[in-house]
Design a binder for these strands. Sequence first.
DNA 1: CGTTATCTTGATGGGTCTCAAGGTCTGTGG
DNA 2: CCACAGACCTTGAGACCCATCAAGATAACG
Lengths: 247, 247
Amino acid sequence: MPQGPFRPDPSVLHGMALFNGLDAAGYADAIAQARTRRIVRGEVIFTQGAPCDACHALIDGRVKIQQGGADGGQAVLRFVGPGEMFGTLAMFMAGGYPADAVAATDGVEILWDTPVLRALMLRHPVVALNALEMLGGRLQEMQVRVRELSTARVERRIANTLVRLARQAGRRTEEGVEIDFPITRQELGEMTGTTLHTVSRVMSGWEAQGIVEGGRQHVLVRKPHALVALAEDLPPPRPAAPAATGG
Amino acid sequence: MPQGPFRPDPSVLHGMALFNGLDAAGYADAIAQARTRRIVRGEVIFTQGAPCDACHALIDGRVKIQQGGADGGQAVLRFVGPGEMFGTLAMFMAGGYPADAVAATDGVEILWDTPVLRALMLRHPVVALNALEMLGGRLQEMQVRVRELSTARVERRIANTLVRLARQAGRRTEEGVEIDFPITRQELGEMTGTTLHTVSRVMSGWEAQGIVEGGRQHVLVRKPHALVALAEDLPPPRPAAPAATGG
DNA sequence: CGTTATCTTGATGGGTCTCAAGGTCTGTGG
DNA sequence: CCACAGACCTTGAGACCCATCAAGATAACG
């Protein structure tokens, strides 16, 4: 069962990019003001629009970040893994959290109150620079996704999404690379801007080719290379691309 | 004609969010290491993949930020206006600039060498916090756009894009709100994930209703309210929403 | 006044969504 | 162990949105 706040083990911070380059005193400073909390699968950690009281980082588990629109449309923005921060955007902006956070598995999070972390950044500027680097990485990722959603067909988008998931949350097995947390076709659809039906159809096709293997809330990538090829391959019909085709 | 680097007027920094809350000494510090440069329309300021030598801010004019993919697909990520920074992402990441920057109008930019600005942030942490706020705002904007591209139809996406452009670059006239820089149907298509043909058709429809007025590289929004309604309205066909329809 | 870039509009086809039905797996309680 | 309910997944058929192909109109520019 979930228990209340308790004092974290200092070692957990050493794996987190936010504190890279911080000296021992800085670590002590950071850890002294943090608290940790257990999370159970399905739990709502925060919701869109709620005031941002704290900044979160995940120590263990997976958390789904999703955003809903006025028209009821939902999009899954990302899955957070161990060592990553989440709920950080709200810290710098009015209007509360811009998205929902729901636990995809049981886990443990560590959190800081917003003003505490701000003060920490002013005392230790390197933490602010690390935060910039993290946010920058996420912004770039989102920009790539905007381009992808703007220009690529569904099949390629799904391939790209699976490649990213495999990199981020893949567990190597002798059968291939396995996504290490439960994910539904519906969620894959909401990550790629399509429906669960299309995701199912596309993945069935790949399964027939031995590229992936699907199951209930479960994905195994049998041929990662083939998936990458689908994700990046140039479109076969290229009228203006001779290049040794026999001319 | 464009002239070489020259010493900027200190007053230009006062309008920039990056330096909010900085003391006089800090301003002097920042200005001492900057240089400015003229930009002519159509000029390529930097290209995707090029090493990031400097961090840019726009003093006057408009700059288009776009990203191309391996498959040749182009997406316009945003238009930068006076007071905004651009090319900042590359500062925190390997791999050079993640997008192209092309001048949409003549203008003037101010720039800092990357290591200089990093050092400035370490000396003045408030600048790093301001940068976080800016990047956070852009990240949120991109997240909203991902959701929009994932869930909304073309007409609504175009409406949303025009609403944003009107807010960001709108000039009030007695006829309505006018986008204050030249923009083509092609570019609008690359901002919304569609083709110039569809943009043209949709806008022709709106023009017939008196909502917008189009021209060559020119958009005038005659009824901003109607455009917002199109951008936000719930989808008319709602089977499970009786609500006084007469039954 | 020709050249080029931009914009408009029609016709057609295909990629995906929607609607619909059924199948499979998981967990629960008797 | 078995029955049952619920969540998840698969697959088919049809409709529709929108990209694509194609042709021409209009405006800027030298």
